[in-house]
């Protein structure tokens, strides 16, 4: 059973003056349990639309979506999910602690569990000191961290995070990445959307690239990075002691090393020169531009 499954999912929005917008076009995608999946795409690509359908906030025009095998039109599908919306907004008349209690009760947690887990996540997200303050007094970063705390409180199997790093300072971003890595170690599934390629490279197992409602590619992050090796930078010392740095094509590396050794050069370093996730992403979403 897949943790998340989209099956030929389409969404057409009816605009004013009968203008239609194809926000999603037959999206099919499976995310395995225990996997960290990055959903990469530029603004308006269809990431949030996919997530909104997944959480039952909007309906699909065609196709289905399932969470842990349960159709997302059933409210029980959401009982195994922790969801962080993009630019989250929570009942700001409540304190952080009260909001977590509200969320915990919604997931039928006992008062004792809410208290224990609440303390844990508030401490983990560095919100313990602010727990009794109304959310309306929180900074943007604090609201984002509270958003993450409310996804963690009931310890779900699946996490759906819509732009989880947005609005966070470098410390906050590092914290979120750490939490995602911890979740992965505990066998949880994390599906997160972003347009920041470095975030995907840092924490994801697989990546899907979406643009204009069409899923362009799905691949493992390691596969993308390995395939992206274009050549090598070789640093060597010549017999006269001078150092030199050479860029060598991938196919020529073996010959180059043999020749260098024959010329009694000592090789100090061989570094792969690769395209990063950003280059892969740009190649996918705007191939003409990159070529």
């Amino acid at each position: 059973m897949h943790a998340i499954e989209f099956d030929k999912l389409s969404k057409v929005f009816q605009g004013k003056k009968k203008v239609t917008v194809n926000a999603l076009n037959s999206l099919s995608l499976q995310v395995d349990q225990g996997e960290v999946f990055g959903f990469l795409g530029p603004n308006g690509a269809g990431k949030s639309t996919s997530i909104k359908i997944l959480l039952g906030l909007i309906g699909s025009t065609a196709g289905t979506a399932r969470i842990m095998g349960v159709d997302v039109t059933e409210k029980t599908a959401r009982s195994q999910v922790g969801f962080l919306p993009e630019n989250p907004s929570f009942y700001d008349f409540l304190t952080g602690e009260e909001y977590l209690r509200f969320v915990g009760k919604s997931f039928n947690m006992s008062a004792a569990d809410i208290s224990v887990r609440g303390s844990e996540v508030l401490n983990r997200l560095d919100l313990w000191e602010a727990r009794k303050r109304p959310i309306r007094g929180y900074s943007k970063g604090m609201v984002q961290r509270l958003g993450l705390a409310q996804t963690l409180i009931h310890d779900p199997a699946v996490y759906v995070l819509d732009e989880p790093m947005s609005g966070l300072d470098p410390i906050g971003r590092a914290l979120v990445k750490d939490i995602i890595r911890e979740l992965k170690e505990r066998g949880k599934t994390v599906f997160f959307s972003t347009h920041i390629t470095a975030d995907v490279e840092a924490v994801c197992d697989r990546v899907g690239v979406i643009n204009k409602g069409v899923l362009l590619a799905v691949d493992t992050v390691s596969g993308v990075l390995e395939r992206g090796v274009e050549g090598y930078t070789v640093r060597l010392f010549k017999p006269d002691g001078a150092s030199e740095e050479c860029v060598v094509a991938k196919a020529d590396l073996q010959d180059f090393i043999e020749k260098s050794i024959a010329q009694r050069c000592s090789i100090e370093r061989v570094e792969p020169k690769r395209k990063d996730m950003e280059a892969f992403f740009l190649e996918m979403v705007s191939p003409k531009q990159t070529s």
Binding site: K75, T76, R78
Partner: peptide, 14 residues
Amino acid sequence: ERRYTYSVLSLPLS
């Protein structure tokens, strides 16, 4: 208007 619905309606609540 304040987008509370995104966070609340994504809970297992009909």
